[in-house]
Structure formats: C-alpha cells, structure tokens
C-alpha cells in the first residue's frame, strides 16, 4: 500500500541514502533500523514527502504522493503538542478543513483521545501532562485524521522506560483497532528490543550512502515477551544485520 521506489537523498554532494526500495502491507507494522546518522529519520520524512527525495518516488495505494497529506501522518521523536491548545484542541487540529461541523470535530477528537486512554483529560494543557500523556495526545491527533499510514520517528525515546513499556504494550492494539482507518505503520527506531516487540517486518539500513542491507519478518505471538528465547534470537539476528562487515 505504501511504496518507496528507488529513493535517494543527498545533501550537497553527500549522498545520505541511495536506491532504497521499501513497501508496507495492510495491517502491518514495519520498522526501519540502523545506526545513528544513517538517515532513518530522513527516509521517514521522504516517505511522507515532508522532504523531497533526490531521486525516486512514493506511492500510496498506487498513486504518487507529491506533498504531505493527512493520509500519511507523522508522529515526531520530540513530542510536539501546541502548548496554547488543550488536548482536545490539539487533536482537533487534524480535522481542520475537512468540512466537519464543530460538534462532529469535537466528537471525533474525543473518540481519538478515548482510544489512546485519555478520556477525562480533554481540557488539560500539554504542560499539565506527563511526557507519556503528551505522546498519547500526539498519537490521538495522528489517528483522528483517519490516516492510512502512520510514520513514527522514535516515538518512545523521550519517555521513561516504564511509560514507554506501557505505551508499547498498548499501541499495537490502538493502531489496528476496529474502526481505525490505519492500514500500516512505519516505525523508525534504534532500540532493537522495541523493534522486535512491535514489528511485523523490519528493514535494516547501513552504509554510506546507506542502503537496505536486510529484511526480517518477525513471527511471534502477541503480546511478546522479551525474555522469550526466540525474542532474543530475533534481536541477535537484527544485531548481526547491522554489524556485518564491521
């Protein structure tokens, strides 16, 4: 459904990544892993057309994407919520310009907050919330726009381990819950445990310019337990993909 074809990106003369082909399928969470600075976040932005590739194109349901669209929603690494808007208003932002009445917007925003477990916090300002709650607001905002694809750039990196763990446990069900329009999620992370816990499929990026050096399907029952020996094997395999030749 989301395809990146022959994607290349350069800054000046320096080629960051080259010849990247990537594809997601329905009800699938796909992760992109790689060392710091390899261009994972940039690739994610190219997939949403927030940054234009030097070469290649992105297709959503077979149609070329030429500029950012609410159908491909981005969730940032640095949790971005507007401090002068309540949680509800932050979510309603994703519903602007869609011809909805005020009541409809409010209803849908409330539902999105409910999905991420923030019922009762609609009138709270971001400053009054914890980091985990803020990230839930950001996810609710992304979901409220009825996206087909969610792009997540290290979404748990600024949360404490306990909060991140709790959110990771819930998030897969939130994404692919009944009534959600979401068809796939692309997650960028350098945390291999997190990747194995959440992903259906993983692309590994490495090199300079970076290329896709491996692809791994993770077939483990959910919820996944990181103390399961098979879980550890997947982590080791991903580690090997990234460290081959080093």
């Amino acid at each position: 459904m989301l395809q990146g074809q022959d994607l290349s990106f350069s800054v000046g003369q320096r080629v960051i990544f080259d010849g990247i082909n990537i594809e997601t399928y329905k009800n699938e969470l796909v992760s992109i892993i790689g060392p710091s600075g390899v261009g994972k976040s940039t690739l994610l932005r190219v997939l949403g057309m927030f940054v234009r590739p030097t070469r290649g194109r992105v297709l959503l349901h077979g149609e070329e994407v030429t500029r950012p669209t609410p159908r491909i929603a981005l969730v940032h690494q640095s949790i971005a919520t507007f401090p002068w808007m309540t949680a509800l208003d932050n979510v309603k932002l994703a519903l602007q310009g869609r011809g909805l009445s005020k009541e409809e917007m409010e209803e849908r925003a409330r539902m999105a907050l409910e999905v991420v477990g923030l019922s009762g916090f609609e009138r709270f300002y971001p400053k009054e919330m914890s980091g985990g709650m803020r990230q839930r607001v950001a996810i609710a905002r992304a979901l409220a726009g009825d996206p087909y694809v969610l792009l997540m750039d290290e979404p748990f990196v600024h949360l404490d381990e306990l909060t991140a763990e709790r959110l990771r446990r819930e998030i897969y069900d939130i994404f692919f819950s009944e009534g959600s329009t979401l068809e796939s999620v692309v997650l960028v992370s350098h945390n291999l445990n997190e990747v194995v816990e959440l992903s259906d499929r993983v692309y590994a990026m490495r090199g300079s310019p970076a290329r896709i050096v491996g692809e791994l399907r993770i077939e483990l029952e959910r919820p996944r337990n990181q103390y399961n020996p098979i879980f550890s094997e997947y982590v080791s395999e991903l580690y090997s993909m990234l460290s081959i030749g080093e």
Partner: peptide, 22 residues
C-alpha cells in the same frame, strides 16, 4: 520548531488557519 511546520504541512492547514492557530 520544525516539528510544528511539519504538522501544519501534514494537516494541510491554509494560510489563515496557520496564522490563527499556530
């Protein structure tokens, strides 16, 4: 922050909406 610009692009806010809301 650049994140806010990306969000405005993402939700395709028009000029006046950008001004008024963000």
């Amino acid at each position: 922050p650049v994140e806010f610009w990306e969000l405005m692009d993402n939700y395709r806010l028009g000029f006046w909406d950008r001004l008024r809301r963000v």
